[in-house]
Design a protein around this nucleic acid. Structure first.
Lengths: 241, 241
DNA sequence: TAGTGGTCTAGACCACTAC
DNA sequence: TAGTGGTCTAGACCACTAT
């Protein structure tokens, strides 16, 4: 309707050209593509048009512009595979793949459960929950942010274990003898919120894979609800049936 | 690092303001937000800046601009839930939710299997595969594109059943007595390719949920490999463990 | 015809990096 | 200091919709 095939927009043309150069290796990984001004001269277009083209490459994950330096070609390796099953956790996945990982508690508080949280976790009006924001890194680079909701009654005096936080599941297992089991997960694609983009050090408009999960006690009663956001183009969630 | 909290960019400010107005209902669903020129006057900024702000809302799924008319506020209903299990298919999911749906075969051909396809499907060099591109609609609106690869040996004379295409699985069941079973699926978030964006009638930079699936025979031998792309912010894939 | 969104040019000023 | 990317202004021309 709007964009029929022969209608070639200038900035999309330039983007395709640049992607071709990267695919063919003419712009090598970890090297710079030509500067915006250089591209303006090459294509005889305005810098705004070049910026639209480069912006598309950025959103698609091909390049990362660095202020004052230039625009670098990304690795685009095979995406990191994250296997989801009833038992798997972030740490175990990373360990299996031999990737150095760490978790960081960036925020937490205790508060009344919202209506949705009450419903998901089988709580009543007066129940309190802990809400944790956890940033996970691979090779020192931030890859995911997870918001975790867990009822106070499951983890009394939880705050005592949050100093020197290393791993949520380590705390659950060591101090509460709780072994969570994944009950269900749902997947959505979205764009990073401003806050998430900042924490994950991502440009705007990079696609995010959002994974909402319910974790239960082995017996089946609800235990924990979480929403994880990971950079979508460099990771892959695998489910086996 | 780059975007600390107090640093408020003009276009992000305007975007936040507009989102607030939509959330609070001051800009009603299916109504227009003020025109770009009007917003220029309101915020005393250039039209390019306004367009950045509106572009963000568009990518986030809040609004859809229509050339010559205006920029309309979207429904943002609860996302359509698509339950993935070993047996579920698109049609059954939609039927369960009482949604009118249809499938359309937009392209197909028979060709040699690529190396990857050989590996996934257990084929050898000389084997042929059918490749289908299927567009699925809900309420006449395109929601997903699926590329399906199926070996010729599984479906001899497949082309005879592709005229008056209605449903892939109907053909498999009725003409070949094949009942596919989902073996595994992986999820990634990405941006729509230009072609997909056109087919799905989406603006650039809208996030896409990409689902790669292996379907097997009930006995466990590989049968079909597919990659589905659906608009990510209005759908949700649910997996139960 | 007037108003809307879509694309692009021209050019300013800034902050960051490298030398 | 020179070059780079980041943000924004100013304004042009176009295609589409409504009347």
């Amino acid at each position: 309707m709007k964009r029929s095939q022969e209608m070639s927009l200038r900035h999309l043309e330039i983007a395709e050209y640049l992607i071709g150069k990267i695919c063919s290796g003419q712009y090598a990984v970890n090297e710079k593509i030509p500067s915006e001004n250089e591209l303006c001269r090459q294509f005889n277009v305005n810098r705004n048009t070049v910026r639209l083209a480069v912006g598309r490459l950025t959103n698609l994950g091909w390049v990362t512009p660095i202020h004052g330096k230039g625009c670098y070609v990304n690795q685009i390796p095979e995406p990191i595979v994250y296997v989801l099953s009833s038992k798997t956790r972030f740490s175990e996945n990373m360990k299996k793949q031999g990737l150095a990982h760490s978790s960081q508690l960036i925020d937490w508080h205790k508060a009344n459960a919202t209506e949705g949280e009450q419903k998901s976790l089988g709580l009543v009006d007066t129940d309190l929950v802990y809400r944790l924001e956890i940033l996970r890194c691979i090779d020192q680079k931030p890859v995911s942010i997870t918001t975790t909701i867990i009822p106070e009654q499951e983890v009394p005096l939880f705050e005592e274990h949050l100093t020197n936080f290393q791993s949520l599941y380590q705390i659950l297992i060591e101090h509460y003898q709780i072994h969570p089991v994944r009950a269900k997960s749902s997947f959505q694609a979205s764009l990073a919120s401003l806050k998430d983009a900042e924490l994950l050090d991502l440009p705007e408009n990079v696609p995010i894979l959002q994974i909402e999960s319910m974790m239960n006690h082995p017996a089946g009663t609800p235990l924990e609800y979480s929403v994880a956001r990971i950079r979508g183009d460099m990771h892959k969630c695998l489910v086996e049936f």
